[in-house]
Design a protein around this nucleic acid. Sequence first.
DNA 1: ACCTGAACACCGTTCAAGT
DNA 2: ACCTGAACACCGTTCAAGT
Lengths: 236, 236
Amino acid sequence: MGELPGQPDPARRSRTPLSRQRVLSAAVALADEGGADALSMRKIAQRLGVVPMALYKHVANKDELLDGMIDTVVGEIDPPVEGADWRSTVRLRVLSARRMLLRHPWAPAVIETRMKERPAPTPAVMAYLEGMIGVFRAGGFSLDLVHHAMHVMGSRLMGFSQELFTDSPSSAAASSPPPEEMAARYPNIAELAGAVAHEAGSVVGGGCDDQYEFEFALDLTLDGLERLRNAAATAD
Amino acid sequence: MGELPGQPDPARRSRTPLSRQRVLSAAVALADEGGADALSMRKIAQRLGVVPMALYKHVANKDELLDGMIDTVVGEIDPPVEGADWRSTVRLRVLSARRMLLRHPWAPAVIETRMKERPAPTPAVMAYLEGMIGVFRAGGFSLDLVHHAMHVMGSRLMGFSQELFTDSPSSAAASSPPPEEMAARYPNIAELAGAVAHEAGSVVGGGCDDQYEFEFALDLTLDGLERLRNAAATAD
DNA sequence: ACCTGAACACCGTTCAAGT
DNA sequence: ACCTGAACACCGTTCAAGT
């Protein structure tokens, strides 16, 4: 990759100064090659020609490194195409997400673990969800139906996964950014979260019933399968 | 839990001799409490009042321990109910799988990783898939449609997950048990695998096109969403 | 023959000592 | 003030020494 000569370079010392992005890129490359198990702070440092402690200037710890890695790869997903109908747009974007996951096989398990341990998704995941909600809204889906649609898509949105995010108002409110800033940056998410909070406002801690959403998605899938079976039987 | 007194018991030594099942149970309990990260051979041994090396008599290594843990929790999923229609049966069983995963939050990520690294699913996963295929078959689904159905269910079958198994003939054949024994133990899987291998027999390494299956499942979901949206618009 | 303690090659991260 | 080596508390697993 263009080794500039005429420099001391003892033991592959990096001339470009270390940066968070360089650390994350090295970490992603390492995980791509050997899986999440092969990833260690010490190996990342070694690959960058740097002492392990140097990494801690750019990432707080390994957890924060993993968050950064997720953000990096989710950021690789193509943005929504312009001027197409909602269905083609969702389809293309989900297929782009799938291609990303095929490039980074370690990502699903890491995201799965991360989403379960941490309340707030990373910025790139938020942006991805934001864009997807926007496409559904522009396609004429009601807020209620977008809410269901996001849950139904769930496992497909990232090509896998149980739940991409927990959208109960409490956990969303517990996240770092203040509500106004979040509403400005992610208007569709904010609008949806507001509607969801209102919808089941009477129930304590209301908002989103994961169990209901899971069954809703399941039943929709079963409906499709049954329809296919009946069509095949009729065509005989 | 019924501590029998009048025994030496120095430092909680186990009187019941160590067994593979006791090791796996302790490991599952540990992971349930502290997540997969909190799981270590040394901590399992400590909890069993045993020296770490003693575990290696019952599990070859940590990878094999994880396989055993998966088998244990998948074995907790209810068997198919008798005498109900296919749809109720699948529905109940998938909901049972989801309840199991809620009890063992570490399981999805571990299964995800495991399935990606290893070719052959554990016996309990095989039995689970076997039962599910049987239900679809008894419900009048053609082999072709069962094949699609298993892929569509994919992420729901375990309440998550990209692909539960790779059903390309090559990888299936590479698994340990000889084809006849596998056909005897898992007739539905064997029948399906045979049909799939035949179906695309002309294609080199034929069998199952993951990309096609993913898009098939995605399109089915999208169809359902579109139908719902149109129904909601008409009802206005 | 069986069991097990010490040892080895790793971890992530702290912290004090160097510049 | 910044950087970094040594150190600490862990890992999974090997292996030789004990019974």
